[in-house]
Each structure stands twice: as structure tokens, then as C-alpha cells.
């Protein structure tokens, strides 16, 4: 049977669709901003492998670039660099790393900032031919006061309530199909992407990747009592949201 929403059947096809995708990109680690030196080095590289420099997208990594002189932050001229690289068959698509000042300059030159490799690196799994199996632990009963349940390497699913005085812990996400009245700690090995889902948030403590809030810091809007909620991290802060908008 085709599972298709009626909306798709009657509306015209949309003009585009946004989807996430992964690319392997060449990264140009910039050490100094000496225009002549860059040009000389580029010319040599192009000579070695001309086919490589054919509109090749590159990301400019600013991590090892010395700070621009404090009195002249704009002395770092990305416009010039951009043209230089284009002229040698490279297409800069963005910058990464570097100080906030450098990044601001890059943004003004129209180069978007790509995520810092170090912060995402912590959660990126080593590449394998097959994805590592994620094991979920399913608990078919309520978790009562004094009990502790841990799901190593994966998600924890509780088909019931987590009582005050109980503790549920997972390396991944925690799904509670009941009220959360005890303590829930997701991503305890540092996974900042992990989340906590529950049918009612009355927790004693919530934690994701070590960032936590205790009951009196949760400050749930009284209107949200008894509603299905989720907890996630954004910019290192715990965010409490409705499960669905």
C-alpha cells in the first residue's frame, strides 16, 4: 500500500526540496596571508596536478593563521584571496575555525562559516563501511524510586513512569512513555546531540552530556505541566521544548 498524504496527491510538485548531505571537501589550511607567497605556491601546485584545479570547491581553514594586527583587522583581505584562488581553478565555499574577528571579516567577504571541526569531531563517529549498530534498551515497566536503569551505547526506552527517586541513564537518547518524575541523564558519554523525551516533565534532574538542571531550575510553565516535552542542548544550554509544535 502506498502511504502518501493527500496533500501530495493534490498539490503541484514543490519547486525545490532541502536535504542534508555529506561532502568530502578539500581544505586549504592558511598559515599566512602573504599574497605573493600564496600565488607562488599555488602556481607550483597547479603545475603538479593541473586536473585537480578545475573549479575545485575548497574550505579555507583559519585555525593556524596568525591574528591580523590589532589596529587593522581588515588588513586581512579575503576579497583578494578569493580572486586569487578562483584564478587558479579553486572555488572557495566557506571558512572554518579562526578567531571571531577573522570569521567576521570572512563573512563580510561573503564566505560562510562552516562548523568548527573540533566541536563536531567529538561526536562524529569514525567512518566505517557499515554503521555501528545502535542498541536500545527497552524497559517494559515503570522505573520506581530507588531503581536505576542504564542503557550503554544507545537509547533507553521506558514504557511507563520514572518515579521520583528513580534514575534513568543512557549513552544516547532517553524516551519515557510516561511521566518523568525522577532523574534522567542522556548522553552521559558526551553525546551533545542526545535528547530526553517524556510525556510529562516533573523531573528532579535532567542532564544532557553533563549539562544539567535540577528541579528548581527547570521552571516549567505551569501550562506545560502534563504535556509531552523534550530536552535538548543548543549552544551548550539545556533547552526545554514541547515534543511537537
Amino acid at each position: 500500500m502506498l502511504l502518501r498524504s493527500p496533500r501530495f496527491a493534490t498539490e503541484p510538485a514543490p519547486p525545490f526540496e532541502l536535504k542534508g548531505s555529506l561532502f568530502t571537501l578539500t581544505v586549504l589550511h592558511l598559515f599566512q596571508l602573504d599574497r605573493d607567497a600564496i600565488e607562488r605556491h599555488l602556481a607550483r601546485k597547479v603545475k603538479q596536478a593541473p586536473s585537480f584545479f578545475n573549479n575545485t570547491p575548497v574550505v579555507i581553514d583559519l585555525e593556524d593563521l596568525a591574528e591580523p594586527p590589532a589596529n587593522n583587522p581588515d588588513g586581512m583581505n579575503f576579497d583578494g584571496l578569493y580572486e586569487l584562488l578562483r584564478g587558479h581553478g579553486m572555488a572557495p565555499v566557506g571558512v572554518r575555525n579562526g578567531s571571531p574577528e577573522l570569521q567576521a571579516v570572512a563573512r563580510r567577504a561573503g564566505l560562510p562559516l562552516l562548523p568548527d571541526s573540533r566541536s563536531t569531531g567529538a561526536t562524529r563517529k569514525p567512518e566505517r563501511s557499515e554503521p555501528a549498530p545502535i542498541r536500545s534498551r527497552i524497559v517494559n515497566h515503570p522505573v520506581r524510586s530507588g531503581q536505576q536503569v542504564y542503557a550503554p551505547d544507545g537509547d533507553l526506552i521506558v514504557l511507563g513512569t520514572v518515579s521520583a527517586g528513580a534514575e534513568v541513564i543512557a549513552d544516547g537518547n532517553i524516551h519515557i512513555y510516561g511521566a518523568l518524575r525522577g532523574r534522567a541523564l542522556a548522553g552521559v558519554k558526551g553525546d551533545v546531540e542526545s535528547r530526553i523525551f517524556c510525556q510529562s516533565l516533573e523531573a528532579e534532574l535532567i542532564s544532557i552530556a553533563g549539562r544539567y538542571r535540577i528541579s528548581e531550575q527547570i521552571n516549567l510553565d505551569p501550562a506545560d505541566r502534563g504535556k509531552a516535552m523534550q530536552v535538548h542542548l543548543a549552544d551548550d544550554r539545556l533547552i526545554i521544548d514541547h515534543l511537537m509544535r
Binding site: V143, R144, S145, G146, Q147, G165
Partner: peptide, 13 residues
């Protein structure tokens, strides 16, 4: 009630 919850956990485990 909290203590009873605890006992229910012990009964179940």
C-alpha cells in the same frame, strides 16, 4: 507514597 513506590520496585525486581 515514595516508600510504597520503592517497595513496588523491589517487588518487581
Amino acid at each position: 507514597v515514595r516508600d510504597s513506590d520503592r517497595i513496588l520496585g523491589i517487588l518487581a525486581s
